[in-house]
Every structure is written in structure tokens, then in C-alpha cells.
Design a protein around this nucleic acid. Structure first.
Lengths: 191, 191, 191, 191
DNA sequence: AATGAATGAGGATTCATTCAT
DNA sequence: TATGAATGAATCCTCATTCAT
């Protein structure tokens, strides 16, 4: 057989890497970062420990790559047209997307929440996250200001907290959580 | 010389125990249960590892005692008169207490949130926690039903999520979080 | 470079495993199970503590594998043709083998005796051991019955005790113990 | 109340000491020396750890005192009239005593056997023991020589081993072991 | 004489990481 | 690229012993 081309190798590498990251994501989210051993991740991914270190230079590096991988998608839903003005429809769209995202990526959410509570790890991601959240909060506050709220900033913060809280609760019982009804309730009450 | 009296020993034990629990609570909340070693807790508490085991029969026992210690106070604020009917004033009182509690016990909150995300550890507390929450959600749903909500259950769940979310956000920036204004907003909007 | 083949790994494992078991057998027999630390076994075997756990999942597992390893040979000498009837020649053959075994495996004997006296450890082996001994005692009692003994069962028990006692005494002074002469004496007196 | 006299104190000390030794003997014999902790011995004896160290300067010292305490009685039965000549009646008397001793002191036997197998501990007692056993073996060999045995020394060794073996077996099942029948068998066959 | 709090060394075990092949 | 043997530091925990009271 002819030797593989560089592209083929590159592709194999990419596949393997995702395969490992997927397994690791699941384990980190399910059992926690500390409680997931490299050995068990490698075993689950059906590769050797040595090979894993060929793709990730450390356990922490593996975590970072997983988190950053899922991060971008999530951020892309904050104020989609980036004009700083949130219309009613955009807000609804955003809520819809937010819940859809939550639904599709429970496991990522679980991981993010758990990481947020481990300061040493969270320090790594906090800046990026804060940077992405801040403008959204401003936009949201302005939305409520236009609607004549008595304390637009507090209202924005409250809505932000609510979304966090729902995500937080949802990850524990994704199967029975009435996500759609809660979504509707938010739209009725807060848009 | 005569040995210490039972009371003297009792007092020493009580003091030491609290000293250890305080240090451990802080470490567990700050770095997570798994990442906090018995060695570091003992070092921080300025005692030997061995002594810690004189007071707690295992690391898990230490955690349990810390969590259960803080649990009681928290539970006492759910529907104070226990009649299953939540009046407007009781609801406001509850919200006020909830926020006061949050304020005074940030660190306990941090610990609870972090525990919830460590499935293997959370198993230990989930039952008690669920048992305590359930009646409150029922009571809350009935409150909204009486107010004529279109979907009382979803509304109760949403409020629950919001309180969780606020707690969650608050623990990250207790110093600048506008807890009072958010509290007022909740009372305006949800009571 | 290519990784080792499965066979190469298999061979390494087999070698190492025996190396560890040999050292551990000696230490367990010499100093007792409780008094032999994994650290010292690893040191003696010139490997790291960690590696030992690559081959045995616990200290207890190490012991079990050692004991069961030596067990099979020993059992194969009880009533070789398994018909439940012990002829004079078979009895002599058995005695001969028993002493030969003792001679070759002093250290295993020493281990067995020492294990029998550590109730918590012995629980692990007692059932298998009893199971192996019982039919032999029955066979032996029948042998003496056929010979017209007044109390065949007591005689069988006595002979069993004697063999135990000889083993027990022998392990303390294997170099000067007159094993052959005692063997002859037994054949003269008890066959 | 009048202060206690020196004798009274002495008596209390002696009582306490025996109380501790009795508890410790039982634990050492039942669970092994290594597995019996000073804490548990003190707890069982209903005294404090500190007090135990008031009577015995170390765990090893406690063991030594226990063993030496029980040693004397046992030794006194080897060739009672010390004349070096064993008559048939003396031999029978000795056997009887031996079995009686065994019966009354299973627990001491158990401890001795277990100690014999821990060389580091046994070194402490071996000399005394050997010293006591040797003349008995000589006497016994002479007894068989007088009876015209083909190999008196081997026969003496065999009988010694048998007694050891019976003791060894007896301690594991004192309740069901047919001590009397075995004793009778020995007298029939070896006296 | 008596207590039990306190220590610290040592025990079994786990695991991220390295490396020869 | 791929393997898993090998390491050693760190983990939780136990226990003989000391000591202030």
C-alpha cells in the first residue's frame, strides 16, 4: 500500500483528537476533573496513555482544549448582530437559541459550571467569559431602560441570573425539566 | 497532677473541631473537595494530620459534618409556619431571609454549589436536599396558582432557578453584586 | 520506533510478576504478612512501589496469588488416583511426596503456617484449604478402618496432626532436621 | 477517707496489670500482634492509653510480659521429677497434663504458635524454649531406646512433632476437636 | 495514678507523566 | 505513530508513643 499522505495523517490526527476530547469531556462532566484519570480516559478512548500525551501535553492542556473548543459556539449567541441594540425579536431569538444550545450541549454546560467553581481552573477562562458577557449585560440593561424599568441594571442582572439558574438546574435533570414551559414563561414575563 | 475534667476535654474538643471545620469549609469551598488535601487542611489549621482524624473519622465525615452543620439554618427559612400556605408577607419574609442568609454565608453557598457538581460527592447530600426543596416548590406553585398564573409550576420553577442563579452569580463577586437592588426587583416582579 | 509486540510485553510482565512474587513470598514467610510493607517488598525487588500495583491490585491480591500459586502442586498429591481408596503403596507414595514437597517448599509451608495464625487473613484461604483436606481425612480414616484400628478417625486425625507438626518443626531448622529418618519412622509405624 | 497504704496501691497495680494482660493476650491471640492496637487494648480494658504506658513501657514489653507469664507453667510439665528417667507412668502423666494444659490454655497456645512464626519476636523467646525442650527430647529418646526402638531419636522427634501438631490443630477448632480420643490413641501407640 | 489530646513516622494506594522500544 | 512498563510524589489514613494537666 502506498504510504499515507501528509493530509491523511493530519486527518487521522484530527479525528483521534476529537475522539479523545469527546471521551474526556464526558468524563470530566460526569465525574469531575480531579476524579477522571488519564488512564481511564485513554482506556475509554481505546488508545494508550502514551498516545494521549502525543496529542495533549498534559491533563490540564486537555481540559483547556475541550473548554475552548466549546466556548466559541456559546459566545456567538450574545447579541447576534452586534449593533448594541436589542430588539424584541432579537431578544426572543436569543432566548430561543440559548435554550436550544443548552439542550444540545448539556454536557458542556455541566463542565462549565463545574469549572467555574474551581477558582484555579476558572482563572484560565474567566477573562474571556467576562469579556463576552459584559456587553450583553449592557445591551440588556438598555433594553429594559427603553421599556421603562425602574432599575434596568438590576433587571438585567436578574434575567442573567435566571438564565444561569435554569441552566444549572437543567443539567441535573435534563430528562424531566420542563424547559419549554419555562422558556415560554420567561418570554411572557421578561421580553 | 490530676487529669483534666471531662468538661475541660469537652471544651478542647469543641474548640478544635470548630477550628478544623472552619478551615476545611474555606478550603473545600475555594478549591473543591477533591483538590483539598487533608494535609493542607491540617497545615492551615496548624495541627497534625493525625489529630484531624481524632475528630473526624474520614475526609468524607469532615465534609458531611460541615455541610450538615450549615444545612439546618438554611432549611428553617422555608415556609416558616409550615402550614403549606404561603402568604404574600411570608413570601417577602422568605426572600429577605434568603438573601440575608446568602449574604452571611457566601462560603457555605459556594460549597453547596461546588458539591452539586461533583456527582460522586453529591450523592451523599442529594436526598436530604431534594427532600427539603420539594415542599417549597409545591407551596410556591400553589401561591402562583392562587394568583392566577397561566403555568404556576413553570413559574415556581423559574423563581427557584432565579434564586439559584443569583446565589451562583453572587458568590463570584460578593463585593460588587447589587444584592439589595436585585432583591427589590424580585419582590416587585414575583411576589 | 515501533512499540513492543504483545508477546514482548507478555514476557516482561511474566518475568516481573514472578520476581515480585518471589520476593514477597520470602518476606511474608519470614516476617509475616502484616509486618511486610509494600515499600520494603518493592525495595527488595528493586522496583518502584507504583509498579507493584501495576501487577497486583492490592497487597491482599499479591498474597492470594502467591498462595494459590503454591497450592495446586500441594493438592495434587492427595490420593493421586482419586478413587477414594488408599492402598498401602499409595500411602507410602503420598508420604514420600509430602516430605519431598516440604523439602522443596519450606518457604511456602512457612507462609501457610503463618497465615493460619492470622485469623483475618486466614479467612481468605480457609475454605479452599478445608475443602482439600476433608476428603483426605476421610480416605485416611477408611484406610485405618480396613486395618482394624480401634478408633480410625482419631488415628487419622493423629496422623494429620503429626504431619502438620513435622512441617511446623521442620521449617524452624530445615538444615538439621532429620527429615528422612522421621519419614521412615512414620512409614514403619503408621502405614 | 484515709489515704491508701502502699500495699493497697501495690495490689491495685497488680490487679490492673493482669487485667490489661488478659485483654491483650486475647487480642494478640485472636487478631495477631500487629493487628491489635494499643488503643483498642486500652479501650477493651477500660483504661486510658496513658495508663497502659504506666504499666508497660511499650507494646513489645506488654507482649513479653504476657508470654513470660504463661511460660513457666508450661515448662513445669516437662519431666516433672527431673531425674532424667521417664517411666511409663510419668510419660502417661505428662501426656495427660499436656492435654489438660492445652485444654485450659488454648489462647496461650495460639499466641505461642503465632509468635513462633514471627522470627523477630520469636528470637526473644527461642533460647528459653529450646533450653526447656532439649532435655525433654533427650529423656524421651532414652525412653524409646529402652523400649528397643530402631531409631529412638527419630521416634522422640516424631512424638514431639505430633504433640505440636495436635496443639496446632486443636486451637483452630477447640470445640469439635476429639482431644480425648486422640490422647487415648497416643497413649496406646506411643507409650 | 490517670486522662486523652497531640504528634509524626509509616502504611497502602493512586496517578500524571516519562521513556525505551 | 503507538505502546504500556516504570517512576515517584502525593493521597488518605493508622498507630505507637509522649505530655500537659
Amino acid at each position: 500500500m502506498a504510504p499515507r499522505t501528509t493530509e491523511q495523517y493530519e486527518e487521522i490526527r484530527e479525528t483521534r483528537k476529537h475522539q479523545i476530547m469527546e471521551v474526556a469531556l464526558k468524563m470530566f462532566a460526569d465525574k469531575g476533573y480531579e476524579s477522571s484519570s488519564i488512564s481511564s480516559i485513554a482506556r475509554e478512548a481505546k488508545i494508550s496513555k502514551g498516545l494521549l500525551y502525543n496529542y495533549f501535553k498534559s491533563k490540564e492542556d486537555l481540559l483547556i482544549q475541550i473548554v475552548e473548543g466549546g466556548f466559541q459556539e456559546m459566545l456567538s449567541y450574545f447579541d447576534p448582530n452586534k449593533d448594541g441594540i436589542l430588539t424584541r425579536d432579537e431578544f426572543i431569538y436569543f432566548i430561543e437559541e440559548m435554550f436550544g444550545l443548552m439542550n444540545r450541549n448539556v454536557i458542556h454546560y455541566k463542565l462549565y459550571f463545574s469549572l467555574m467553581l474551581q477558582p484555579m481552573v476558572w482563572e484560565l477562562f474567566k477573562p474571556k467569559f467576562a469579556e463576552a458577557i459584559a456587553p450583553f449585560m449592557v445591551t440588556l440593561a438598555e433594553y429594559y431602560k427603553r421599556k421603562g424599568s425602574t432599575d434596568p441594571e438590576a433587571e438585567a442582572i436578574m434575567v442573567g441570573a435566571m438564565l444561569d439558574g435554569i441552566g444549572f438546574n437543567y443539567i441535573f435533570n435534563p430528562d424531566i425539566y420542563p424547559l419549554d414551559r419555562v422558556k415560554q414563561m420567561i418570554i411572557d414575563r421578561f421580553v
